[in-house]
């Protein structure tokens, strides 16, 4: 069960910190409602579908489908060596929830709505995030 600030024992942490702790350890885990079975993201103290407090963490498959996309076209400025295109996606995870992320190694023009993707954890210690790679190109 999700930690409660009212329970005795070791100092509890809230759902945000628990999610981030999983990500820091290289895992995408989601809360699952023990009453209605819904998988939940963003992390919460209660189920937004049935309002139960009985939530447990479970590993996600990491598989999902691109629901939509947008691409920021930056105007290049002197000293700014960032790519001029910055694509962001919404992914519908196979478990149900939707998550904002990126396909950092896929050119923006190749990001299609409906494409299958797989999650990975990336980034430096202390700043890890959930990113995605195309799943279809793999056998």
């Amino acid at each position: 069960m999700t930690a409660s600030p009212d329970r005795p024992g070791p100092p509890p942490t809230g759902p945000d910190q628990q999610f981030q702790a999983h990500v820091a350890d290289g895992r995408l885990w989601l809360q699952t409602c023990q009453d209605c079975g819904s998988a939940i993201f963003m992390p919460r103290i209660l189920c937004p579908h049935c309002h139960s407090l009985s939530l447990q963490w479970a590993p996600a498959s990491g598989l999902g489908t691109v629901y939509t996309r947008s691409v920021l076209h930056r105007r290049p400025k002197p000293g700014d060596d960032r790519p001029t295109e910055h694509a962001i996606i919404l992914v519908d995870l196979d478990e149900g929830p939707r998550i904002m992320s990126r396909l950092p190694d896929t050119p923006a023009a190749d990001i299609r709505i409906g494409m299958r993707v797989r999650a990975r954890i990336a980034g430096e210690d202390g700043a890890r995030v959930v990113l995605f790679d195309p799943e279809e190109s793999k056998t």
């Binding site: 945000d16 963003m42 947008s70 920021l72 962001i88 992320s101 709505i113 700043a127 995030v129």
Partner: peptide
């Protein structure tokens, strides 16, 4: 702004409307 969107550097509010437009088009 939303905690789990900020790390991906959306440009508010435009990113959201571009995503709605892209989905409507598809």
């Amino acid at each position: 702004q939303p905690t789990y969107e900020i790390p991906h550097q959306p440009r508010y509010p435009m990113t959201a409307y571009a995503m709605a437009a892209a989905r409507h088009m598809a």
